[in-house]
Design a protein around this nucleic acid. Structure first.
Lengths: 175, 175
DNA sequence: CAGCTGACTTAGGTTTCGCATAGTCAGGGA
DNA sequence: TCCCTGACTATGCGAAACCTAAGTCAGCTG
């Protein structure tokens, strides 16, 4: 039964609740499957309304509602654009806020490739520079790969008193 | 307008559709917010029905339905357990399949900490060994950190002919 | 053996999500 | 000027996801 270890004031798990949980808040901003699928198509480069709607496989009324929400919430932005000889049309593109959801989508894809299909999935991500496959990982600030059984959950900003091993020797970023 | 670059047969985006997309399949297995929240509590170590239900903030009928689904789908497993002097009760724990969703939840939390709250979120993950913060990253098999604008989307198993730079020098895993 | 606790189940009702179908509306082309 | 395309909007309806409140049922405990 794997689980994350609680530390400090979180230790008796019964003594607190995950009320301000940002997983829940993120889901409140996305929640519906259609939002995920439209964002996926935005990552794939779709910008036009009918393109987004058709490729995400959601009906136009739903696409319109969802796109409006995503723009209001700052994940997408609308910009007018004009193809040569055409009238100006609205286009949709990822904002920085939306683009930073990439790890969420890649993590879902990675998990689905492994567990939700037999054939490993239809597409894969590659690093343009070296051509090798791309995946998501958990890393700490000292660049160690971290596994579930090495995770501590702590209240925000509670710095652990001292590091016990590892550490600055192979530090790469401090963030 | 950031986007992933398409390669090979995917290049005219209009020529294919994301029908077998494993993001969608993953969402079909999870989709509801209550499933995410129950899994979150499983990661936090909750095993009992009433604990999972109360801490996830979902009503008992929903918790019962969701837990049954998650067990059927192999993300959680039921095991009888007995606290001393108590009768045997069912408990729920993450399977390997469920545990591998960790990057998805961490990615959601990380995004929510940054974008869905002002205070950075209530809790944070730390690496037990060194005490530093844990986050999700995109990495390639040669261990390069990968950004959105360095991503290529390719059909599965389409190996890029040759790597152009980077590569085996600092390789760590081949997967 | 009566009562309590924990793990559900049932019933009823609301809200949200989504689809299909059918407009509307603006601008460009024939 | 009329038609076409693309981007929506309006309406109506079924299904899904929740919630509250109220059981049920199996084993301990007293």
């Amino acid at each position: 039964m794997p689980a994350i270890r609680m530390t400090g004031p979180l230790e008796p798990r019964s003594g607190w609740e995950a009320s301000g949980c940002t997983i829940a808040k993120s889901l409140d901003l996305l929640s519906t499957k259609s939002a995920f699928l439209l964002l996926r198509e935005a990552f794939y480069g779709a910008t036009r309304f009918d393109d987004l709607s058709a490729r995400a496989g959601v009906s136009e009324p739903v696409a319109a509602a969802r796109l409006k929400e995503l723009v209001e919430r700052g994940l997408l932005e609308r910009h007018e654009y004009r193809e040569p000889g055409q009238r100006a049309r609205p286009g949709y593109g990822l904002t920085r806020k939306g683009a930073e959801l990439l790890p969420v989508l890649v993590a879902l894809m990675q998990w689905g490739d492994r567990w939700a299909t037999d054939d490993g999935g239809p597409v894969e991500l590659r690093h343009r520079d070296c051509g090798s496959r791309v995946h998501v990982e958990l890393r700490c600030d000292y660049d160690h790969e971290v596994d579930l059984d090495e995770l501590d959950l702590a209240p925000h900003h509670a710095r652990r008193p001292t590091s016990r091993r590892g550490g600055a020797a192979n530090a790469r970023r401090t963030r």
